[in-house]
Each structure stands twice: as structure tokens, then as C-alpha cells.
Design a protein around this nucleic acid. Structure first.
Length: 767
DNA sequence: AGGGTTTTTT
């Protein structure tokens, strides 16, 4: 059977020649992904530049590139190339470039005119990923500057009119697919979330008993529901049935079972939405749709995310239905009533409206778009979302309040393929000599879940994990896991024995090296620190906006944002172990409760740097000095908004500096009329085991307060707390140190990250 | 106190 799209060849070429933008609509199987690039190449569109094709997933980009290379008679990397993260198979001669949409976004950051390209094709635009929506907005803006650029938006038959209208009523070309009919069977009544597991299991059993052969694909919301459906079906002891769960956190071997064929048996795949878009399973004849989906949402007012079970949209349910009928006519059993379906929203809310915009706004500003609220999106995010993005970027120091452009820190952050908060940690790490450590942590934080807890082996897994966990920090835990992984010589068996996901660790390795390379281009030295507190502080600086303070029992609340009743996630290394008053979290996600994940304890002395509007450092005071030493220890109190002391930080300074600090304090004490007193110990009459410290000055006698700690023969500045029956009680305020070794060398200024930022800014000069 | 849909990035 000839691909239906071949009949449309001339129309498509003509439309692209005549219009800046066209929308091509066709179901999977229409061949649009592979054929349109070939048409455009054959029609000569590669003569004036590269034809770029974006895909939402790496496998799609690489496999279509390989297929098209074969058709054209090229090898991948030559005329037809592809680029995905960690894998660039393109050359100067590449005319057709397949890539993930993330790569095209990065190219916008390097050259906002996309000058190399003559045509850009955005595939799977209907998925409405964050990247696609951002790219479509950028392309609309770019078309004002580049009249010669051609844009093709390829989508399933979902919201083609929306795309067409967005690009000034661009022509829409429909390409029929090669779908077989899929009959819909409606449920009798609506089923709630509680009952859906039993209803699903019963429906699958019934199909198995009464329908002709053919595999079944069932859509549920998550791992737990999938497990319960599988268990329920196992209890029914049906014959000739193979049950295969399908979700992302499954180990690789388990995932392979999804694609295996089981001759003589009926395969039943119970899946999350992974089977709706990411993986395609051949030979599905029956789809059973619960009608529910788990969806991540973002709440800009609080900065928390929520993972919600919601009714799936009409277009999403249609997508599920389409998973049957790819090889023969199929049936789709919907476990909800037709009347319920009609009331559902037409489309799933695009991702750009359900995430923090901080990363998108950072990228926009890096590209040179200052008035971000005026940027044209297909579906514009809310004002609150833009406000949250701004506040987050201000808190991170990427932009300054009241100004449009990026700071030097912001420019460096934009160059790192990380979320803004995670990128900020690395900039902080540069100041404290731990870039390698924090880049490693960043790689873990930006990857998937490393700690595996296979079902039935939870206890063994937890036991293995305990040995790796740092009770104060998930970030430091990651560092420990990395060290041990290196010690094992990157051994898969070691990962398996310790219940760690080896694929994730290999990806962490790749991300690490990518980050190291970028940092090298910034002129950052690769540094490591043995001081875990320094590393943890860099992490905390990036996450400062999500600072949480202990409120009651196990719950925490936001300091800088309105968040209440946050609990440490049971999977966190600090769960059940921390009694820290402050913590930071890499994520706050509401599921059954609001959970903080990726937690690190915060020391009070970090607070003034993390949230200067809420916490201050007191004046420095001399805390300790050893006679003859070249340096002294000074301490600064950490104060909250009411001036209450929350803790203190200490640092070592040259004696000359300590002398200056003490002199200033003495001047202040004298101006306030404090008394300078030297005490001696006097055993008190009847109770010889208690001691009291007394001092005489100006013919008067003073007694140190009962709890005061004083040393004999050392002068203290004191304040009067009580006078009773002629006896004056005083409270020592500070000790006066006798410095006998004025040091000659003044303090050395610390290396400044701003200097390095300027260096990078200079070498970044945009063309 | 007790547990997360999915994808992607110079």
C-alpha cells in the first residue's frame, strides 16, 4: 500500500513555496515525518540552507534520520544528520538535520536568527510540549525578520485550526492516515477513582472471555493502580493471558516484555500514558481506557507542583483509541459514559501553562527578548506565571528588580542545560571551590530517580540505600552515591546489588561531563572540596526560594513563599532523621500530601545570604584568641526580622582585623556607659562548692550574675542588671582580649565570581 | 509521618 502522503507531494511543495508557514495534519502512519523532509530536499529547499526537523524524543530523531538517510542513499551524519543531547551526527555537508526540539531551542540561544536554516519542520506539535510552544512563539517572531524562512508545523488532527490561526491563517494540508476503524464501546455509568481498578480488571477479563484474539492495551494513571489491576487479574486465574505492566520506572528488562510476542496467548499491557505518546506497541486490537490521567500542574502563587488525577481530555482519549487499529480493525472500550465524555475539555492544557516559566523566561532574555509578557504564545501563560518566573529569577540573582536584561550570573545560568535553580548552585559553587561536587549533584537532580525500589524487594532496597544516605542532605547523598559508583569502577552489578538504576547513573555521567565542558568554557576551574558544609551551602543557595521552616511536629512552612503543611518525603535521606529548623527542597510536590523532595538541612548562618530581606548578620565580635597566635576567631550573629538571634557564624581573621573589631566595640561600649570590670573568684561563705565572681571599681563592689561565665583576671565590659541592698549585679557583655601580636598582613580579598562572569560576558559577544 | 505521569537540554 502506497503511503497516502505521496499523493500530496506536489501540493505540499507548492504550499511551502507560496507561504511562510504551512500546517500539515495527518495521523501516525501517514508518513509525514519521513516524507516531507524528503520532498523538501528533492524540491531544492536545502540549497539555501539546512532543512531542520524537530522531534520530541531522542529515539524519534535518530531513527527517522537513519531511515531517511537510507531512502536518500546517504549514511547518517553525511547529507542526512541528526543531533540529540550527547550525540551529534552532523557535518558541514548536512542538508537534512533531525534533532530533538531542545536542540533547536539551544540553537536559538546561539543564533536567534537561525541563519543556517532554510526550513524548519516542527513534528508532533499537537503534543504541545513546553519546547514546542516556546519554539512556535520564537518562529512567529523570527518570521518578521526572516522573510525567506519556511516553517512547517506537523500535527495529528487535533488543533490544526489553532496552529493555522496563530500563523496568520496558514494553509492546512490534510494527509489521510493508514488507520483501520476502531469501534468505540461506551461504559454504562461513570466510575470514580476508587472503583476504577476493579472495573478495569473486570473489563479486561470480559474482553478476554468474549472477544476474538488480539492484544489488549489498558490505560491507568500510575504504578500503584497498574499493580492493583495486575494483581486482581492474577487472582482470577484466567488462562492464556500474559500480564505486562508498562510505566517509566520499570527496569529495562521488564520494559522489553512490552514488545515481546507471546504466541498462543493474549498479551495484556497495563500502562500509564507512556503508551499514549512515548512508546508504540504493535498488534494492539483492544484498548481499554479508564479515562483518567495523572498530570503535573504548577501553582505559581506558592511555587508548588501538584500531581493530580484528572479526567483526560477528548483529544487525549482519542489518542488512546488510536493505539488500536494500527494493523487491523480494533475496538476501544471506554469505562465512562458517552455523556460524560461530551462534557470533557477538548484539549489537554498545554504544558507551558502547567510549569514554572522561570527557565523559559531565562532563555527568552538570553535570546534578547526583554518584554516577555508580550511574547506571542499559541496559548499565553497567566500573569501569575510570569510574575513567579520573575520573582524566582530575581531571587536567584539572574535579573535585577526593575531592569530587563540578565545579570552576569543570569547569562551563565542560561548557558547551562539545567533548571535555573540547579544552574544557580553551580555558580555559587565556583565561589567556594566545589564546582565538580556541585555539578555532580546537579546532574543527579536533573536526571531521573536513582534509587530503585522494585516491588517485593522494598525492604532489601531500603536496607541497601541506608548505607548510602547522608542524614542531612539528599544532595550530599548523591555525591556519596557517585563516589561509591566510581569506586566500583562504574559496575552495573554494583548498581544492581545496591538497588540503584544503572541507566540513570550512566546518564548522570554524561550530564556531568557536559557540565564540566561548559564550566571550562566559562573559565571555571574544576574544583573539589572536602568540606561538605560548603557544598551543601552552594546547593542551598540555588534552592533558597523554597526555604522551609519547621512549624509543628513533622510539618514545614515556606519562609519566602506562602506554603503550608509541607512534609519531608519518605524517600528523602533526611526523612525521620532531621531536626533542623530550616531545610531547602529541590521540589515541592503535592500528591497525597504536600511533600518536599531533594532536601538539604540549612544552617542558620547561611540564612542572611539565602534570604537577605529576612535575615541579617549582626556586627562582628571577637570570639576567641590564643595568645601569640597570628589570627583570631570572630563571630557574627544571625538575626531574624525581630532581631532575635538564631545562630552565629565564625571565621578566622588576621589579628590586626580582630584588633580593629574589638576597638570599635570598646568605643561603642564606653559611649553606652558600660563598665569595664576584672573579676576574681570568691568562694561564698556557707556553700563552699559554689563560687561567685566579684570585681571592685571606683570603691564599689560588683557581682557577676549567677549564670554568667567569666574568667579570672580578664577584663569584661558589663552592664548593670540589678541593684539590691547596696549590691550591684552585672552581666558581662563581652571579653576584652589582650592582643600581644599585631599581625602585619592585611586580609586578602576573596576571588570574585563577578570577575569571572565579566570574563564570560566578554567572550560571549553575540554575532 | 510512609511514596512520582512523561519528556527534554551547550
Amino acid at each position: 500500500m502506497e503511503l497516502p502522503i505521496l499523493k500530496e507531494r506536489d501540493r505540499i511543495i507548492q504550499a511551502v513555496s507560496d507561504n511562510p508557514v504551512i500546517v500539515v495534519v495527518g495521523e501516525t502512519g501517514s508518513g509525514k515525518t519521513t516524507q516531507i523532509p524528503i520532498f523538501l530536499y528533492e524540491a531544492g529547499f536545502a540549497e539555501s540552507g539546512v532543512i531542520g526537523i524537530t522531534e520530541p524524543r531522542r529515539v524519534a530523531a535518530t531513527s527517522t534520520a537513519k531511515y531517511v538517510a537510507g531512502v536518500i542513499g546517504s549514511t547518517p551524519g553525511d547529507l542526512v544528520g541528526y543531533q540529540v543531547r550527547f550525540d551529534d551526527e552532523t557535518t558541514v555537508g548536512t542538508a537534512l538535520k533531525f534533532m530533538t526540539d531542545g536542540i533547536l531551542l539551544r540553537e536559538f540561544q546561539i543564533d536567534s536568527n537561525l541563519s543556517r536554516y532554510s526550513v524548519v519542520l516542527i513534528d508532533e506539535a499537537h503534543e504541545r510540549s513546553q519546547n514546542v510552544d516556546f519554539i512556535l512563539g520564537l518562529l512567529k517572531d523570527l518570521l518578521k525578520r526572516r522573510r525567506d524562512l519556511k516553517v512547517v508545523v506537523a500535527s495529528a488532527t487535533i488543533d490544526e485550526q489553532k496552529f493555522s490561526n496563530f500563523f496568520n491563517r496558514a494553509p492546512v494540508i490534510n494527509v489521510s492516515g493508514r488507520m483501520f476503524p476502531v469501534e468505540v464501546v461506551w461504559g454504562k455509568e461513570d466510575v470514580d477513582e476508587e472503583m476504577i481498578v476493579e472495573v478495569m480488571a473486570d473489563a479486561i477479563a470480559e474482553i478476554h472471555r468474549s472477544e476474538p484474539e488480539g492484544d489488549i492495551l489498558s490505560f491507568m494513571t500510575g504504578e500503584d493502580q497498574i499493580r492493583r489491576v495486575v494483581e486482581s487479574l492474577e487472582r482470577m486465574k484466567l488462562t492464556d493471558l500474559v500480564l505486562v505492566p508498562a510505566h517509566a520506572s520499570l527496569p529495562w528488562e521488564e520494559q522489553q516484555k512490552i514488545f515481546a510476542s507471546y504466541p498462543g496467548k493474549r498479551k495484556v499491557i497495563v500502562a500509564t500514558n507512556i503508551a499514549e505518546t512515548s512508546i508504540t506497541i504493535d498488534g494492539i486490537v483492544y484498548v481499554v481506557d479508564s479515562g483518567f490521567i495523572k498530570q503535573m500542574n504548577f501553582h505559581p502563587e506558592s511555587g508548588i507542583q501538584s500531581l493530580d488525577v484528572v479526567l483526560h481530555s477528548k483529544s487525549g482519549c482519542e489518542q488512546r483509541r488510536g493505539r488500536a487499529g494500527r494493523t487491523q480493525p480494533g475496538k476501544c472500550f471506554r469505562l465512562y459514559a458517552e455523556s460524560d465524555f461530551r462534557e470533557r475539555p477538548q484539549f489537554t492544557e498545554p504544558e507551558i501553562k502547567r510549569i514554572s516559566l522561570a527557565g523559559v523566561v531565562l532563555a527568552m532574555k538570553d535570546i534578547g527578548i526583554d518584554k516577555v509578557e508580550e511574547f506571542e504564545f499559541v496559548d499565553p501563560p497567566s500573569r501569575e506565571a510570569f510574575h513567579e518566573a520573575h520573582e524566582t529569577l530575581i531571587a536567584l540573582g539572574a535579573i535585577q528588580r526593575g531592569s530587563h536584561g540578565l545579570t552576569d550570573i543570569g547569562k551563565m545560568m542560561a548557558g547551562l542545560p539545567l533548571e535555573p535553580r540547579i544552574a544557580r548552585m553551580i555558580i555559587e559553587a565556583e565561589k567556594h571551590g566545589c564546582t565538580k561536587d556541585v555539578a555532580t549533584i546537579a546532574a543527579f537532580l536533573s536526571g531521573r530517580q536513582v534509587f530503585a525500589r522494585p516491588k517485593g524487594k522494598e525492604i532489601q532496597a531500603d536496607r541497601a540505600h541506608v548505607a548510602l544516605k547522608n542524614p542531612a542532605s539528599d544532595a550530599l547523598t548523591f555525591l556519596r552515591v557517585w563516589d561509591k559508583y566510581e569506586d566500583s569502577d562504574f559496575d552495573n552489578q554494583w548498581c544492581y546489588d545496591n538497588f540503584l538504576n544503572a541507566r540513570v547513573l550512566r546518564e548522570v555521567d554524561d550530564i556531568r561531563y557536559q557540565l564540566f565542558n561548559i564550566l571550562e568554557s566559562y573559565g571555571f576551574e574544576p574544583t573539589e572540596s572536602s568540606d561538605t558544609a560548603v557544598i551543601a551551602k552552594a546547593v542551598a543557595m540555588g534552592l533558597a526560594y523554597s526555604l522551609l521552616e519547621h512549624r509543628s511536629r513533622h510539618s514545614y512552612g515556606g519562609v519566602l513563599r506562602q506554603i503550608d503543611d509541607v512534609f519531608i518525603h519518605p524517600g528523602s535521606a533526611i526523612f525521620g532523621l532531621s531536626n533542623s529548623r530550616w531545610i531547602v527542597a529541590s521540589e515541592v510536590v503535592r500528591t497525597t500530601k504536600t511533600y518536599a523532595r531533594g532536601c538539604t538541612e540549612v544552617k542558620p548562618e547561611w540564612l542572611p545570604d539565602m534570604a537577605p530581606q529576612h535575615f541579617k548578620r549582626g556586627e562582628p565580635v571577637v570570639a576567641r584568641y590564643l595568645k601569640g597566635a597570628e589570627s583570631a576567631v570572630i563571630s557574627k550573629a544571625v538575626l531574624d526580622g525581630y532581631g532575635h538571634e538564631l545562630g552565629s557564624s565564625e571565621e578566622s581573621v588576621p589579628v590586626a582585623e580582630a584588633i580593629a573589631i574589638q576597638k570599635a566595640r570598646v568605643r561603642d561600649a564606653e559611649s553606652k556607659g558600660l563598665l569595664k570590670l576584672t573579676f576574681h573568684n570568691e568562694a561564698s561563705g556557707r556553700y563552699s562548692f559554689t563560687a561567685s565572681f566579684v570585681a571592685e571599681a571606683g570603691g564599689k563592689r560588683y557581682k557577676a550574675s549567677y549564670h554568667a561565665k567569666v574568667e579570672e583576671g580578664v577584663p569584661y565590659y558589663c552592664k548593670v542588671v540589678d541593684t539590691y541592698l547596696g549590691q550591684t549585679t552585672v552581666e558581662p557583655v563581652f571579653q576584652v582580649f589582650a592582643f600581644n601580636n599585631p599581625a602585619p598582613s592585611p586580609g586578602q580579598p576573596l576571588s570574585s565570581v563577578e570577575e569571572l562572569a565579566q570574563k564570560r560576558g566578554a567572550s560571549l559577544g553575540r554575532q
